[in-house]
Design a protein around this nucleic acid. Structure first.
Lengths: 145, 145
DNA sequence: TAGAAAGTCGACTAACTTAATCAAGTTACT
DNA sequence: AGTAACTTGATTAAGTTAGTCGACTTTCTA
């Protein structure tokens, strides 16, 4: 049930950029703040760029910044884009469902996995980068009304 | 955020045994029901045995059965025993915590991981094998009162 | 306009994990 | 004695993770 370091590091980078809001931040500065090597960050930032989360400027005084406002960046989407489905098993994944023959005979595990998927997805899909920056990750969730 | 097939298969095997309650069930019969190869099941059943979930009888007419009643087998414990901590990051793991230097500077991600850990652990630690057999996995959780 | 700063891109790799498979046992029933 | 059945440890093939490397392109500035 782990989050991979790629997802973790991507979120660290987004947080670092979110704290500077509009300025360009260079990889080596992001590296200092996130404790991730420049070379690995480079790879991760390219992924973030290709998925439309950040924009970059090359050359002297270049760097990265967020493409959208932090309140429009949804953590669940970032994690799915960077490391794949949130569901614990593909038989309960909305975004990448795979058939399992046990479904036909009334699998007794599927409802459990579905519940986990729902809880995790609900939480991450209702948390934005701004929530992280505000340290506002409790409450405010759909099923707690 | 995946459950490994080892954990999934172990739970399938426990369910198969739980349905027979007291009889000895042979690996090849568990294999038919769970759709897991006999040879891989063999390995998994040994793990389940070493962790005290099942007992076996060798020789002709041997097989496996549950060591305890299904209502005493907690799914969270099975998963932790078979595939490790439930926490999405080791910095929020109760059972296998590991220090992360970002903690000292107020990591903004840790509260999120902690919340996920709490939700998943709460769910799995309040679900027993009997609940799975009864298809009774909703409600009845501590934070829903 | 040369040179340095900074991002880009693709290939590569070492270590680890997963998911098995295999072979050679040991035990116990008939 | 024979065979069904569990036991154990070694091995392996494939995939993933977490990087590393090197050559390249763009852009600013002196």
């Amino acid at each position: 049930m782990k989050i991979s370091s790629k997802g973790e590091y991507a979120l660290r980078a987004l947080i670092a950029l979110g704290r500077k809001e509009e300025e360009l931040v260079q990889i080596k500065d992001i590296s200092k703040e996130t404790l991730v090597s420049s070379q690995y960050l480079e790879q991760i930032l390219l992924h973030l760029k290709s998925h439309g989360y950040v924009i970059s400027k090359r050359g002297v005084n270049g760097g990265y910044k967020l493409k959208e406002a932090p309140e429009r960046i949804v953590i669940g989407k970032v994690i799915r884009d960077l490391e794949g489905p949130l569901a614990p098993m593909s038989c309960v994944s909305i975004t990448s469902y795979e058939y399992c023959p046990l479904e036909d005979q009334g699998c007794m595990l599927k409802p459990l996995w579905a519940l986990i998927r729902d809880e995790v997805a609900d939480l991450l899909d209702h948390t934005t980068l701004q929530d992280l920056l505000d340290r506002n990750i409790n409450k405010k969730r759909s099923d707690r009304k």
